[in-house]
Design a protein around this nucleic acid. Sequence first.
DNA 1: AATATATATGCATAATTATACAAACAATCT
DNA 2: AGATTGTTTGTATAATTATGCATATATATT
Lengths: 151, 151
Amino acid sequence: MARSARQSKILEIISTYEVDTQEDLVLKLRELNFDVTQATVSRDIKELGLIKILSNETGKYKYAFADTNSQASNKYIFLLKEAVISLKTIKNFVIVRTLKGMASSICSIIDKFNLEDVMGCVNGDDTVMIIFSNNEESEYALNRLENIINS
Amino acid sequence: MARSARQSKILEIISTYEVDTQEDLVLKLRELNFDVTQATVSRDIKELGLIKILSNETGKYKYAFADTNSQASNKYIFLLKEAVISLKTIKNFVIVRTLKGMASSICSIIDKFNLEDVMGCVNGDDTVMIIFSNNEESEYALNRLENIINS
DNA sequence: AATATATATGCATAATTATACAAACAATCT
DNA sequence: AGATTGTTTGTATAATTATGCATATATATT
């Protein structure tokens, strides 16, 4: 089922581009081979609890994460559970293995958790690397992520 | 000009009721003698940076404050500046005098600032009373509010 | 005061979004 | 397997929201 993949891709897209209509999102998804209609995107947005706000930079509307919506964070956690295969820590890094093609989406979800002392978060196709300021913090974050995923 | 009054009334309305359409808001405003159309409400919502989110309680859409929008908070501050006449503190209270009829709106804006140790916030027609847990906190909050208003 | 300029609003409508309904598809049961 | 039930999606459209343009109202300028 492409549903989960599509939804996390949506999270990634809106954290990368300023998407101001659902039709826009449809086009971007189609470029990425998600054959989808506006109706479905409307439903996804509802489930993900995304909101349309005025962008501070451009003054135009854009879709964004709604930090205030707990149903939404549940959804993010669900997506993490779906896509994360393994978690480990080496030195000041946490390495997250994901389903193929999902790493960038997972990266943007992890960003949303605002983990302490994160220096940065990069990804390939199926791997996310979170860089911390020191080894202790990465241990701690690994724990937190494991707890989230097993909750 | 009724514009500021109307906008702060909108803030009050959405923090009191679950408003799910602009037409709804128009009706509520009309009950309060703000003769207004949906077009104007649409523009107000844009300026106030309000968002439409899924209500966690009812599962329906509703308008809400967007905490993430700095243009919006500027707007709240502007409304405070417009409507607040005086600020003083007595014991563990801060007393805010406002333009007539604006107290309830100002109350809901002040709520948004999440001041420390607020026990509660009540209002009449032109007066807001913020109750703190102790006298020091009310002094401190008075200062913060003064700074906000004179910024 | 008269004129010019800026701001706010309504009307009409374009643009956008949500959803009822039907169809496709998947999962479960007998 | 076939029947049953639940889930996801598209189509078509209803519902909602944003906005161009005209007008009114306020503000500033001479």
